[in-house]
């Protein structure tokens, strides 16, 4: 139970932190922000690995395996999408520097 309470304290602080950090982000970056936070919840992969790693029956293994596959897709897909979007912004800045 102490574990749960300390986790609850962490949640409250993390929620405020998330709110504070995000409230400063300009509209221009809303897509990368959304896709970046989409990538960050890919940390679910870590939980999926533990779930599969501690699975003992076949059913648990199957569900755990699905979890790992989906978690891994979330991580790599989320990363590549965000990186590609931000690359666009980088490139448009570079072009501007070149033409003016």
């Amino acid at each position: 139970m102490t574990d749960l309470y300390s986790a609850l304290f962490i949640v409250i602080l993390a929620a405020f932190l998330g709110y504070e950090v995000i409230s400063r982000i300009p509209v221009l970056l809303h897509t990368p922000l959304m896709s970046g936070s989409n990538f960050i919840h890919g940390i679910v992969l870590v939980g999926a690995m533990v779930a599969l790693g501690t699975a003992t029956t076949d059913l648990e293994r199957i569900i755990g395996f699905i979890a790992v596959v989906m978690g891994a897709m979330n991580v790599t897909g989320g990363y590549v999408v965000t990186e590609r979007i931000l690359e666009m912004f980088d490139r448009s800045k570079a072009k501007q520097g070149g033409s003016k």
Binding site: A15, H41, V46
Partner: peptide, 17 residues
């Protein structure tokens, strides 16, 4: 599953989203 990395990262995304 007492995994604080997931707790904090998930909450950050929850608040931001």
């Amino acid at each position: 599953i007492t995994n604080y990395a997931m707790v904090i990262a998930g909450t950050l995304v929850g608040a931001a989203g």
